[in-house]
Structure formats: C-alpha cells, structure tokens
Write a protein that binds this DNA or RNA. Structure first.
Lengths: 218, 218
DNA sequence: ACGGGCCTCCCCCGCACGGGGGAGGCGGTC
DNA sequence: GACCGCCTCCCCCGTGCGGGGGAGGCCCGT
C-alpha cells in the first residue's frame, strides 16, 4: 500500500508544489492538506497519514508546536518531516527535540523530496539537509537533543558498532581489522549507515552521531 | 636551534628507546631524563626543555599530576607530549584536561614519534593517536575537555572557518562555494588543518573539533 | 627594503571512499 | 517449507580526498 502524506504549509503554492512532486510517485499518496498547525491534530486523527510534511513558520501554531502536539496526543503518530528554508536554522534544533524524524529543504530537488518521504516513512531518520548543520555553531545547549532521532534510524547491532568505530576516526580497513571481518563487509555496513542516516559520507554520519547524542564528546 | 626534549618514564628501556630515536634527528636534542613525575618540575625549571615526553603510569607521581604541576607552577611551560599505551585509555581524557598538547603511542614507529615531537614543539596539537578515540564511548563527562588543546593548534582565521564548515558536513566544493574561493584553496586549508591537528582525514578533524569543544553538539 | 605569515591558486598522483549491483549462509517467523 | 532480516563477501567503477610540490600577492613588523 502507498505511503500517505499530510501536507501542512500556510502557502498554497508550496502545498501545490509538494503535491505535484509527491503524487507523481506511484507509491506515494497525498492524504490531505492543512494551512495551519492548529488544524493538524484533527486531520491526523482523521486521515492517519504515514508522514506529515510540516512547515516551520505558520500562523496560529508553528510547526514545532504542532509537532509536539501531534506526538503527544496522537497514539501511534505519523512520522514528522519538517520542511525548512535556509532561514529557519534556529528552529531546526527545536524541531529535533520536539521529535521530528527528518528535515527537508524547500529548495530541494523533487528526487530528494521523494527520497526524504520514503526514508522517514520506512522508519529511518533524515538528519542531514545541509541547513541542519548550521545550527551547530549557534546553540550552546538547552538540553540533550534527540538521541531518539538516531535510534529511530533502526541501525542494526553491527551497523551501530561500525558507526561507533567511525566516530573514533577509524578507516574502513581499521574497522575491518578490529571487528575481524573483511573490508568489503565494513563497506556494506558503512553504506547502510549512510543510507539510514541520510548522510552523504562518513563525516556527516559522525556529525549525526555527535549531534544526536549517539556518541558523547569528552 | 634544536628542539630540546625532557624524557619522563620510569622504565629505563623506554627512555633509552626514545633517546635513540630522537637523537638520530639533527634538529632534536634530549635535554635530560627523569624516572618519576615528582622529579619533573625541578628538571623543567633547570633545563627549560621545549617538550616533555611524559609517561602516564609512574611511581610517586603519575604523568597527569606531573602535567598539571608543571603547567601550574612553571612560567612559559614546555609542551607536554603524553606517552601512552593502549591500556592507558582511561587516562587520556584526564591528560587532555590537565593541559597536555599531544599524545603518542609507545608502539608508534620512530618516524611518528619524531613527527609528534616536532608538531607539539611548533605549537600544534596532536589529538589523534588511535587510542585517544577510545575514550569517547567510555566517559560521560566530568567537565569540559580542553578546548584549549585545539585553540593551541593555532589555526588561522581561515583554517578555523574551514574547520567549522567541515564540522557541518560540507564537502570541499561546497565550502569553496560558501567561502567564495576555489576548491584548490579549500584543499590547502583542509590540509593545513589536518596537519595541525594531527588528523589523518576530515572525519578525524571533525571529531577533534567536537571532542575539544571547538564546535558544540546540539 | 626585506622577511614572514597568510591567503590564494595551480599541478600531479595514488588511493580510500562510496554507489550499484549481486550472492550465499544462518537464524528467526509464519 | 518458505520467507525475511542480518551478516558476510565479492565485482566494477567514478571521484572526492589528501599528499607533495610550487608560486604569486598582500599586509605587517622591523
């Protein structure tokens, strides 16, 4: 059965764009739309979408509040894919803490948008649109961010182990030696980790590990 | 003038080995030896070495205590290069907090040992023998580690900026675009950063940035 | 006026990395 | 028995990365 998506954005144009992109896919279906965060909860209860594509800036109730509200009040809640622009940097961190499963830049190419929806629908986390990184330098703390976000990425035992080794700065060959497997096997695990985290390379994966609390600095 | 080094290790064999390796270099000179941490402070005051190669496990006063003592009591103190084994993992973190400038594995090859001494003598930090990474998973916190260690790496403005971009997961090409310079220039800066941090690749550099507090997670 | 640090850009080159495939074994579940 | 997830290993292939050089322009301090 197809992945159902609820679009939440105050701009009709953006909703139309997302709808066009997503409905071009045979395995994705737009279940409905909302123009405001306050309208989201009843719609989620009614439509029970797999994924909510949630804008950040909205009148009445912003995307962060709406995310929190949905996750708090709806049993077996949908995945929340937060739609951001470069200007929304400061909200990304809050969204992560609110329990968002992934991020998406409005200016992303259609293929990326589709990919993001499929990824979070499958239970993986998408922690790596470029903008997510920009918060790093800006925010001191305010509480531990969502380790859950990475845990929800459903890494297998072995993949988690490989990620830990990556986060120690080891090369594939070194990891292979330490885990006593072939380099090819390590490459397989690394690729799986990258895919599940939405990371492009090992560096991004390690950053995600730190940012999500999967590994602790110090 | 040559780099002068004070060797501090309770095992004569290790001291002899270090001496042999270092004195084979025309630009490095062993100023003296000590078999115990307690003997270090007077010797440092007397010999004023550029670098102290400090063992961790020693009778009377261990390398961590000695490092703290030297840095606290000696004006214009020498660089401290902590000599560790794989078994000393748990001390590495403390050493970093105590103000050590670099780490060196006893089993390192001669060329690496020489390189490490030259690096810290030049004011750079060597944060990346493999063992340093192993502490990551083990220690919760206990206080902020040495941001100073990375600051002492004397990154230039531009290098620090490039490192920040690296720590956001950007590729060289993306950094080039963002800083409006050529990819070649970025490569130059990246290479300089790796050299100064003693990192092998960008992933290790980013880890060092997190571990040292140069960038903050969350 | 000269040196030195910094930023900038360029060349060549080898290699680890990562994508895209596939495939076999093994332990669970249905 | 059939299925599926996980781990393991293999192939090919392109390329971003990083090392090793060098070089010119700029500002600054002496």
């Amino acid at each position: 059965m197809p992945v159902t998506v609820l679009l939440v954005d105050d701009e009709p144009l953006v909703r139309a764009g997302l709808r066009a992109v997503l409905e071009a896919q045979p395995d994705i279906e737009v279940a409905g739309e909302a123009a405001d965060g306050a309208a989201v909860i009843p719609l989620v209860r009614q439509l029970r979408p797999d994924v909510v594509a949630m804008d950040v800036r909205m009148p009445l109730m912003d995307g962060i509040e709406a995310t929190r509200a949905v996750l708090r009040t709806v049993p077996d809640p949908p995945k929340i894919l937060v739609v951001t622009t470069f200007e929304d940097d400061e909200f990304v961190y809050e969204a992560l803490r609110a329990g968002a499963d992934g991020f998406l830049l409005k200016r992303a190419r259609p293929a990326e948008i589709v990919h993001a929806v499929r990824l979070v629908a499958a239970g993986d986390s998408l922690l790596f649109p470029a903008s997510v990184r920009r918060l790093a330098a800006r925010y001191g703390d305010g509480g531990r961010p969502a380790r859950a976000a990475l845990e929800r990425a459903r890494l297998t035992e072995r993949e988690a182990e490989v990620l830990r080794q990556m986060a120690r700065g080891l090369s594939n060959a070194e990891i292979a030696a330490r885990l006593v497997v072939s380099a090819e096997t390590v490459k397989s695990h690394v690729s799986a980790v990258l895919a599940k985290l939405g990371a492009r390379d090992r560096t991004q994966a390690v950053i995600a590990a730190y940012e999500s609390g999967f590994v602790e600095p110090g």
